[in-house]
Design a binder for these strands. Structure first.
Lengths: 93, 93
DNA sequence: TTGATAGGCAAGTTGTCACTTGCCTATAGT
DNA sequence: ACTATAGGCAAGTGACAACTTGCCTATCAA
């Protein structure tokens, strides 16, 4: 999961999904190209999404020929728990 | 900084510094070997510490021939701010 | 001043990661 | 049935990252 965060393109994908959740691969491709000025190919993004998914940062649901990608921030809280939380044991929901 | 977190050894170093702050290179080497069962060489650890330092996750202070390493968690809060915080816009200091 | 301790520098090697290329499968529309 | 759209699989390539190796500098004690 930390390795998943190591790549700038993947972090931008997370940003995109933060802004608009449940996008398809092609949507993400388009928005990365236009809004973020990234010239990544479809396959590249596809592989990035696979990494993010196996890191538990993205969850997918299929619907017909579309595959929607949803952000999952829970793994990120591990970071907080591991190095940050000891200082502030409660940020109560 | 995300790339700094991508390496397991570096994360273990952060764990070590979380547990006991202000260690020297040799201390860290010793404790990684004994407590964590890592067989990393001094140079390897040294390079890892350099990465962590340039990522802003570790700060160093020299004193004589010793160089102490202190953990700095502030950069980690970027992560919270970037993907987690939107839910809880204020954790006011 | 000499030896030992704490750390630094730099080149070389190996493995892994991001990306491409080329082709294939599946759903939807006409 | 046929074509376009949405996505998948897998081998190959280039670059970078982790680690080693070998030597060097600086501080402290005797």
């Amino acid at each position: 999961m930390f390795k998943a965060l190591a790549d700038p393109t993947r972090r931008t994908i997370l940003d995109e999904l933060t802004e608009r959740n449940g996008q398809t691969l092609f949507e993400i491709c388009a928005r990365l190209t236009t809004k973020h000025g990234l010239g990544s190919s479809r396959q590249a993004i596809s592989q990035h999404l696979a990494v993010l998914e196996s890191a538990g940062l993205v969850r997918t649901r299929r619907q017909g020929r579309y595959k929607f990608h949803d952000l999952t921030t829970e793994p990120l809280e591990q970071i907080v728990a591991r190095w940050l939380k000891p200082d502030a044991p409660e940020t109560g929901k």
